[in-house]
Design a binder for these strands. Sequence first.
DNA 1: CTCGGATCTGGAGCGCGCTCCAGGTCAAGC
DNA 2: GCTTGACCTGGAGCGCGCTCCAGATCCGAG
Lengths: 114, 114
Amino acid sequence: MSLTPAAAADRTGVSIDTLRYYEREGLIGPIRRSGGGRREYTEDDVFWIGLVSCFREAGLGIADLRGFVAILRAEHPPQERVAFLRERRTALEQRVAALHRAIGVLDDKIAYYS
Amino acid sequence: MSLTPAAAADRTGVSIDTLRYYEREGLIGPIRRSGGGRREYTEDDVFWIGLVSCFREAGLGIADLRGFVAILRAEHPPQERVAFLRERRTALEQRVAALHRAIGVLDDKIAYYS
DNA sequence: CTCGGATCTGGAGCGCGCTCCAGGTCAAGC
DNA sequence: GCTTGACCTGGAGCGCGCTCCAGATCCGAG
């Protein structure tokens, strides 16, 4: 069984327009088409879209994600993949650190006004 | 002593154009002017710009920051301030959670390819 | 006094990440 | 067959957060 665009959007929480956009940008798919040209999303597609939107929510840009997709799909030596992934991980941890600094400031202010 | 725009930009790591933009948007200042109309940043200004860029780095939008500035400056009851600050804090922690989910995915992939 | 570099203003331009639209196609229900 | 609604494509439009530009002004060094 496969899912219509509307169903896939519903399942993933990503709008139909955005799904098409992601496909154009090479972040997902290419999605299989029916005889009439309509997209038919598989469960695997849904899972992959979930990964992509997880990273989007974490603040990665489209270009970053394209690199990520390329690494996970293409035949790069595992060593290179791991290096790439670690690099991304470091970038995300820096974001976490930035958030903690901001939270620290908020905590100070909260303490001050409490 | 006060700082020229260039010096303030240097101290804060925020570009001159962005400093003017933040001022227009009401995130900082208004900055004191010299007789000739040039901006003169104080140490307090520099400190405040640091706060603003801390929140920007944490991913808050300009509108969010405007709200933040309004709360810290205007005469709102402390109770309201604290409520606002806690709300912002929650939002930031949700971002942290999103980042941790993404980092978790990366860790899985790293483990898989290692 | 002159020169040149820093700064001023208002407004245009840009990259990102969608979001929306027009005009056309496909397919299930009557 | 006809209607209706979901879907198709290519491209325009939009909000955000800067970033850049033109043309004018200021001011310290020589």
